[in-house]
Each structure stands twice: as C-alpha cells, then as structure tokens.
C-alpha cells in the first residue's frame, strides 16, 4: 500500500512538472504550428535570474516572481528575434532560427556568467521531507503537485473564461478567421509566448529545486521531455500535452523501478524510440487536436 502511494506521489510530482513543460511548448505550437527549439532556454533564463538576484536580500517569493517575469520576457523576445522575421517565409527557417536563438542564449550564459554550475537560492522547505501514511517523500514533490494543480486550474480558467483565452483557442484552429473578427495577431502570438514563458518560469523553480543549481545546458532536458510528452499526447491538444506529461512520468517511473541497471542508462533511447514509433503509427497522438481548416 505504502509502495503504491509512494509510486503515485512520484508519478504525480514528476508528471506535473512534465505536463507544465509540455503545455508551454504546445501553447505556441498550437497557434503557430511552429516548434520553439529555444523553449528550454526560458527555463535557463529563469534559473540565472534567480542566481543573479540571490544577493539582493529580497524574499524568495519576490526573486521567484522576478525570475518568472524574466522567462516571460525571454519568451516574447524569442518571438521578436527568431519567429517574426522569418515566420512568413518557411517552416524550416523558423526551426533553424529558434535553434540558433537557443544556442545564442546558452552561449551568452557561458560567456557572461560561467560554464560552471551556479547555485540558486531555495527556500528551506524544498530540502525538507514529509512523512505520512507510512510514506517519506521530499516536501518538494508535494509542492510540485500543488503548484501544478494551481497552474493548470488557472490556465484552464484563462482559456475557457476570458476573451483572450477564447480568442487564443480560436486562433489555434483558424488564425485568419480570428483576425477577421478583430483579434489582433500580434497580441495572440505575444500572449502565447508570454504564457509559454510563465509556465517555463514556474517549471524552472520546480526543476532547479531538484538540483539546486543552474548551468547553461539546463534547458535541454526539459525541452526533450516536452517533445516526448507532446508527441505522446498529441502535438496540438492542450489537454493532450498535460496527459502526455503524466503518461511519460508513469513510463519513466516504471522503467526506473523495473529496468535492470545496465539497461537503465539506455532509458532515453527507449523513450525516444517510443516517440518515433508514436509519430509513425499515430501521428496525432493520444488526443487529437482541434480540427484544422474548415468544415462545410
């Protein structure tokens, strides 16, 4: 029983972080049909913001809020630097420019900060453990689950109950029609990037909370996770992204418990082969996204 509870907490905590990562990638993909390869660097930006403000003496929550804000700004900057100049020209061009922007940010961190890990301030509670019902678990896991719950609820409220959210969902199916109703394209795209940055910023707190330090390459892991999760769940469905995150966490946690040690190191090869297989056999993922184009 306690094993079962332990397993569930592990899956929910890991899955929550994964789901937020995936959601941040899909919110942009859904609207622009373009993959943002610089997504992982938004997490890096939030991490370095924490490091740079660590000497300020501000309360942790203020530093975290600033870090999330920086990730949002970096998200919007991604649009202006990597997407806007080439968006109309070709899909391949955008993939390359966003890849270039990712390299740019990483190397800027290398150049201006350091290639070595930098410590990030964390509140005490992140390193404490909680025990209940025979289970001992890091408080961090429970915080992650709670933060995911709050953020997903907030996100769902935004998308269903606000005009901006409804307009974003509309733009994801038919951008031109949404514009012909007066929805400004730039507002929608900037909002998508800002939300993407917000999610990445929160993920950064939870993710860096596991290691306590930030390095220039920190974004690659979350980017890969977001890729797998969105492919599993369906590239264009917001619910699918969340589901994909939890499914991937379930697979990862199960593999961790069951794979023998010398195969465990190949875990990434397994999960990425799974990605390729899913894209081949069920290109739309578990949940089909909104229909594109028109129905008559």
């Amino acid at each position: 029983m306690s094993f079962f509870l332990q397993f569930t907490i592990d899956v929910l905590a890991l899955g929550g972080a994964y789901a937020l990562m995936a959601l941040g990638l899909v919110i942009v993909y859904g609207i622009l049909r373009l993959v943002n390869f610089a997504y992982g660097e938004l997490i890096m930006v939030a991490g370095y913001s924490m490091y740079l403000t660590s000497g300020s003496g501000w309360p942790w929550l203020v530093m975290a809020a600033v870090a999330v804000l920086m990730a949002m700004l970096a998200g919007i900057a991604t649009d202006y630097v990597a997407f806007r100049p080439v968006r109309a020209k070709s899909v391949t061009a955008v993939l390359i420019t966003s890849f270039a922007f990712s390299t740019l940010l990483q190397n800027a961190a290398l150049l201006f900060i350091s290639p070595r890990p930098r410590n990030v301030p964390l509140p005490e509670i992140f390193s404490e453990t909680v025990s209940f019902a025979g289970v001992i678990t890091p408080a961090r896991n429970l915080i992650t689950i709670a933060a995911t719950g709050v953020l997903l609820a907030l996100f769902s409220w935004l998308m269903r109950r606000t005009v901006l959210g409804i307009a974003m969902r509309a733009a994801a199916t038919n951008f031109t029609m949404a514009r012909m109703l007066g929805v400004p394209a730039n507002l929608i795209i900037s909002s998508a990037f800002a939300i993407s940055g917000l999610l990445a910023g929160v993920v950064a707190m939870l993710w860096i909370g596991r290691i306590g330090a930030v390095v220039p390459g920190i974004g690659l892991g979350p980017l890969l996770i977001a890729f797998i999760a969105t492919v599993i769940g369906g590239m264009r469905s917001l619910q699918g992204a969340v589901l994909g995150g939890f499914v991937l966490a379930f697979i990862d946690t199960t593999l961790n418990f069951t794979l023998p040690q010398d195969l465990l190191k190949f875990r990434d090869a397994f999960t990425f082969s799974l990605v390729i297989a899913i894209l081949l056999w069920r290109p739309e993922g578990l949940i089909k996204g909104p229909a594109s184009g028109q129905r008559t």
Binding site: P85, V86, I96, T97, A100, T103, Q106, N107, A108, L110
Partner: peptide, 18 residues
C-alpha cells in the same frame, strides 16, 4: 571567454534567414 564564436554564428544565421 567561451561561447563568443557560437553567439556570432547564431546571429549570422538569424540575419541571413531574415
């Protein structure tokens, strides 16, 4: 100093593609 080279290449790529 590391990374300067990659930064310049990244900027050049974005500029050329734009």
């Amino acid at each position: 100093v590391v990374g300067l080279t990659e930064i310049v290449l990244a900027l050049a790529m974005i500029a050329v593609l734009s």
